[in-house]
Design a protein around this nucleic acid. Structure first.
Lengths: 190, 190
DNA sequence: ATGATTTCTTAAACTGGTTTAAGATTGGTT
DNA sequence: AACCAATCTTAAACCAGTTTAAGAAATCAT
């Protein structure tokens, strides 16, 4: 069984020949480190499932500073979903942090599967629900955790990622400067 | 047509007799100002659609300070969805800010409708997707906006709410103290 | 209406996190 | 191996937002 099929099975049980209907629509693609899958202003024509590597999704604020919104790694989907679903211009940049291999699905295939393969719409409903919960938890943390607590939570919940991603990017993700993160870390190990 | 039926129609087209199947499962309920629909630790047995009034969803942090996570008003659903869907203990408190009338749906009715009424599962998929997008936008704002920008965004996007809700609660929602919000406001009108 | 309670404002002292800057360390490229 | 660029660290000055406190204004209950 492919990693993608295993992933679907981990979310909800689907017969293998039905999974094949989905996999037929996926297209393999590679991106080198630092290459972009998407830039703000473009139209998101696909979303992507990572088979190896990792990416960051980020924006620029009004002062031109970058803010990392999400990291994604193996067996996660990524993409600018609002742009993809509504077919409006993207607000996110998405960049490979490592050489990254993905399975991409085009909007036309997505719409086809949503109509014709009920298992796919069940699967995406579960994905969206999980994402909604994850986002809700992150909002709660942003409102009620200190910088140090957000950093500890990140370490505890994404131990793999914290090895693979530079502190600069982690700092941006939890909403602090790299200098302050460096200070938090030295304070911890003293 | 009832306000609830109108609401569904505004999300996706559904035949009126199918909407009736959903409405049959809804139960009217009232809460006085300051009463709670739910408390952290309880099991969320229902979620609620507001026909009049408004509520706040909030948590306590480790220091015992409250943080408002969401406000909800007419034609919005509210509830601790993670508790409701997963049937785990709630992490949120939900309190009426005004005398509030709701239509509640019990978990058993929800599960029934999800299985037996495809229009309902389509409708909830759309709701979840919209909520996911709204949460994503809020995360972006929390990372990239200043307190003043978050306040201006709140005023622009929820003009009704900002009339009905105390500044203390708005301050908590945007993640600042009431004193600092008061200062921002006086600075603006100078 | 009246008093009691909660909310809002103002202001001074304070703190968590930023900015600036410069040096040390790591990593990528040839 | 050696260079160049990017990342990480440290530290001092700084600022956005908090804390504390006390008075003014609005809201609530009787």
């Amino acid at each position: 069984m492919t990693p993608f099929a295993q992933h679907i099975q981990s979310i909800l049980p689907v017969a293998e020949e039905r999974i094949a209907l989905i996999e037929n629509r996926l297209i393999e693609k590679q991106c080198a480190r630092k290459e972009h899958f998407l830039r703000a202003g473009e139209l998101a024509k696909s979303v992507y499932f990572i088979t190896s590597g990792c990416v960051r999704t980020y924006i620029y604020d009004l002062n031109g500073a970058e803010h990392n919104i999400t990291f994604s790694m193996e067996n996660w989907w990524f993409g600018d979903l609002q742009s993809f679903i509504k077919q409006t211009p993207a607000s996110f940049y998405i960049q490979a942090l490592e050489p990254t291999s993905v399975l991409s699905i085009h909007k036309k295939s997505w719409d086809y599967l949503m109509l014709e393969v009920p298992e796919f719409s069940d699967y995406t409903r579960a994905l969206f629900r999980n994402t909604m919960f994850a986002h809700e938890n992150r909002i709660v943390q942003n409102l009620s955790f200190t910088a140090e607590e957000r950093y500890q939570f990140f370490l505890a919940h994404y131990p793999n990622l914290s090895q693979r991603i530079s502190q600069k990017h982690i700092a941006s993700y939890i909403g602090i400067t790299p200098e302050f993160l460096s200070m938090l870390r030295s304070r911890r190990t003293e």
